[in-house]
Computed example of a mutant assay.
Amino acid sequence: MTFPIRIGTRRSRLALTQSGMMQRAVATAMGVPESEIDAAVPLVEIVTTGDRIQDRRLLEVGGKALFTKEIEEALLDGRVDIAVHSMKDVPAEQPPGLAIAAVPEREDARDAFISERFACFADLPQGARLGTASLRRQAQALALRPDLRIEMLRGNVDTRLKRLTDGDFDAILLATAGLNRLGRAEVIRERLSPDQFLPAPGQGALALQTRAGEMGAAWVAALNHPLTALAVAAERGAMTALEGSCRSAIGAHATVDGDRLKLAAEMLSPDGTGRWRRTGEIDDIHAADAANWARALGLSVGAQIHDAAGDQQIAL
């Protein structure tokens, strides 16, 4: 791959922050001097359909692919050479001709509870207004507190925080990783336990996507974090097994403990009344084919959840 190496990114402040991190990392891996980074590894801003539609949940208008579609088209057309995505926005299957080349080290995967008045989720009063656009967060919150009023909250991080400050909600839920990367961790009142709020598959991780023929680029090995990539492979395996219904909420999170990879995954009904969780693990994560085993673990755990839910899935 020769210079310039163009990085495609969404225009939101968080996306530009994340892409800027990867721009500097790619430049460092390629030996580019600081003064030449913007010319050698330029950022190309792309507005996605998901950015333009702010008044509806994504599942109502096409799902998470709305955040990646236009950037992937730019990759396939040769207008950019790398795409930086939040991994949780990347659909389970890659478009023909594209591939995830690297998965950098993960940030905190947990959800964040943010409120002007309440110190933690458990302190919310009866009937409190909780803002989120995530079907998963909605379902998990209602599974614990069916009395809550879940209200839709779209927009960038600053917009969501302003609506909270303006009094539109008693609390909101966001990803801890995004707040950390934006330097806004001070707004977090509680980092929610995965035992109750299992994160979205890939949450806290980034995906560096390229054309399939450029998987061997010089920067790939430098930016890929093998343990994060392994965990994400397991989570996305579970997501693949469970994405039969666009009306189901899915959580999955894998962790490494010594030589073992442990995965927890779940599916919930939107109102939280149905919740199915299973766990699994594999040994020898340093084997040459560990990524395949991790994905197989996710597929297996996801299939167990699918079977446990049975006919109840029809009502999701």
Rank of each mutant, 00 (worst) to 15 (best):
A92C: 08
E235N: 08
G244H: 05
V47F: 08
R247K: 14
A15F: 03
D307C: 10
D311L: 13
E72I: 12
C120G: 10
G298W: 02
A39E: 14
S193Q: 13
E60N: 13
L153C: 01
A229K: 05
A119P: 01
E45G: 14
I150L: 07
M267Q: 10
A290G: 04
E281R: 14
A205R: 05
E266N: 08
E281S: 12
T255H: 15
K64A: 14
I37Y: 07
A119M: 08
A200L: 06
A141R: 01
R13V: 12
D271Q: 10
P95G: 13
R10D: 10
A264Y: 11
D55L: 06
G204H: 04
M21W: 15
R191N: 10
R278A: 12
G204S: 07
Q203C: 02
G178W: 01
V220C: 05
D257E: 15
D271C: 07
W276G: 01
Q126V: 14
A308R: 08
R189K: 06
S134R: 00
G62F: 06
V103A: 08
A309W: 02
F113E: 00
L268F: 10
L192C: 03
L263Q: 09
R79L: 07
H253K: 15
V103N: 05
R247F: 11
L198Y: 07
E36N: 08
D284H: 14
I53L: 07
R247I: 09
F169K: 01
R181G: 11
F118K: 02
L192R: 03
I285D: 03
A234I: 03
R106V: 13
F197I: 06
M1T: 14
D89K: 10
A254C: 08
L263T: 04
A254Y: 09
E235I: 07
I37D: 02
T210S: 09
I71L: 05
A200I: 06
T132P: 00
Q54G: 15
R10P: 05
M30W: 07
A99D: 04
W276Q: 03
A99E: 06
R277T: 09
D271G: 11
A109R: 11
A287L: 11
R181V: 11
E214K: 12
V301Q: 03
L297F: 08
G274C: 10
T68Y: 07
T255F: 15
A294H: 00
Q312T: 14
A294K: 01
I46K: 02
R117C: 11
S269A: 11
D168C: 13
T48F: 01
G50M: 04
Q126M: 15
A83K: 02
A25K: 06
L161T: 09
R137L: 12
